[in-house]
């Protein structure tokens, strides 16, 4: 059975994946102006500092659904056993328009609407390797 692609941490992203392994969602934050950035970059998108000294800071993991898709055919073979699955485009609470994409673990048939609230959850793919996803908040 094909396995899902595993994240390969690099020097910059290692703290992110270390926190994820402990089921803590972090987001890179500029040390100069405090802006969060997804994904991490070399410069800050807000203050344009070329030396933002990014830190991965824990966030609430709570956010709002801005869009979704139901993947029926994945181009990554490791997901063949998971289709159909839902991907959600989530705006995190920490900052306007701070958006990330993850799986919605409630199943393809769970009713969803723009504006629905979600909370981060983690999928454990391998020892030390967990990736963020989301679940719908109880209404």
């Amino acid at each position: 059975m094909a396995q899902r692609p595993l994240p390969v941490p690099d020097e910059q992203s290692a703290p992110y994946w270390k926190a994820a392994a402990e089921h803590v969602l972090t987001v890179a934050r500029c040390s100069r102006c405090g802006a969060y950035s997804i994904p991490i970059s070399a410069e800050c998108d807000r203050c344009h500092s070329p030396d933002p000294d990014y830190r991965f800071e824990p966030v609430t993991g709570r956010g709002t659904i801005r869009s979704w898709t139901v993947i029926q055919q994945s181009f990554l073979p490791g997901f063949d056993d998971d289709v159909p699955f839902v991907l959600v485009d989530v705006e995190l609470d920490e900052q306007p328009d701070l958006r990330m994409i993850g799986r919605l673990l409630d199943g393809a048939n769970a009713p969803r609407h723009l504006g629905d609230r979600v909370t981060v959850a983690f999928e454990d793919l391998a020892p030390g390797s967990s990736v963020p996803a989301f679940t719908l908040d109880a209404t």
Binding site: L6, P7, V8, P39, I71, L87, G102, L125
Partner: peptide, 12 residues
């Protein structure tokens, strides 16, 4: 999934 892909491909 390394580089830019690490933020999206592991999530599908």
């Amino acid at each position: 999934a390394g580089g830019f892909a690490q933020w999206t491909a592991p999530q599908g």
